[in-house]
Design a protein around this nucleic acid. Structure first.
Lengths: 142, 142
DNA sequence: CATAAAAACGAGTATATACGCGTATTTTAT
DNA sequence: ATAAAATACGCGTATATACTCGTTTTTATG
């Protein structure tokens, strides 16, 4: 990872996304979590008990994608997947171990976020957020 | 895919990147190429004959990632991978079929790119490019 | 109430991405 | 000229992501 800047918005986005992901993953390493897993735990903590589909909607992920990601968290005993009252669904709960990992990861995430924010400038981060949001809108409209 | 806007720069980037990728992939569909494959073909056309490592450097991808991506293009007969004079390396060449696919994909790519550019505004796209570039710099320094 | 429609999920398949380890080949240094 | 270092790769493993299809369960409707 080092080169970049094609003329393609998509390729540029993908490349930066990947680079930044590695940055956050490295920052979170002591917690054993990746940034994607951190974001799933965060959402699950907020919504639990929650079905896979509802959690996927919240996260903006495909249901099957989240299902596979959760399998890994379950294997690592960070979440538990139980049958809900509705026997079609499986309900996500964050385990004690999951809570511990999250609390360990949070300050690491914050540090990474701060570093980037300071590197870019607060206003620029604000502008970035707006642009990303507008991109998604531009694609979905019409 | 529909929700978004966490407070995490990384998660926001990942989500938008994925959404935009789907937009480009859908646009390129008639050509049979995905945007990632299109970008590999474009670079390979420009640099061929080129080793896997050199092409990976140019694209900002891990060598092994590109190797696997090329295997798929080879399977679909869009590129050929031959031994170079240096017997350690494998040399990438775009096949006739690859050229045809590329030429078919190009206007589709251009359309997608134009749609997005019009949706966002040219200045905003320029700002986005700058921000993405600055993000990568912010992460690599220090 | 019975059947049709809808919802929730898993499995299969496919792609993209990277890291570490091992191997073959080429270069370089002594 | 030989040994050491560097280079180019492949494979194994791991994660993230999504689509299609099929199964189970729930809900709606006539």
């Amino acid at each position: 990872m080092e080169k970049a800047a094609s003329h393609c918005i998509c390729i540029n986005l993908r490349h930066t996304s990947q680079t930044i992901t590695q940055f956050y993953d490295a920052a979170l390493e002591p917690s054993g979590l990746k940034i994607t897993q951190f974001s799933v735990l965060k959402a699950a903590r907020y919504l639990e008990p929650v079905s896979i589909s509802d959690l996927a909607d919240y996260l903006g992920l495909d249901r099957t994608t989240l299902g596979r990601n959760l399998r890994i968290l379950e294997r690592d005993k960070l979440v538990a997947l139980e049958a809900g009252r509705d026997h079609r669904e499986r309900v996500v709960r964050v385990s004690e171990q999951g809570q511990v990992a999250y609390r360990m990861a949070y300050p690491l995430w914050k540090q990474a976020q701060n570093k980037l924010t300071q590197g870019l400038g607060k206003e620029q981060v604000q502008i970035l957020d707006t642009l990303l949001s507008n991109l998604e809108t531009a694609v979905h409209s019409r």
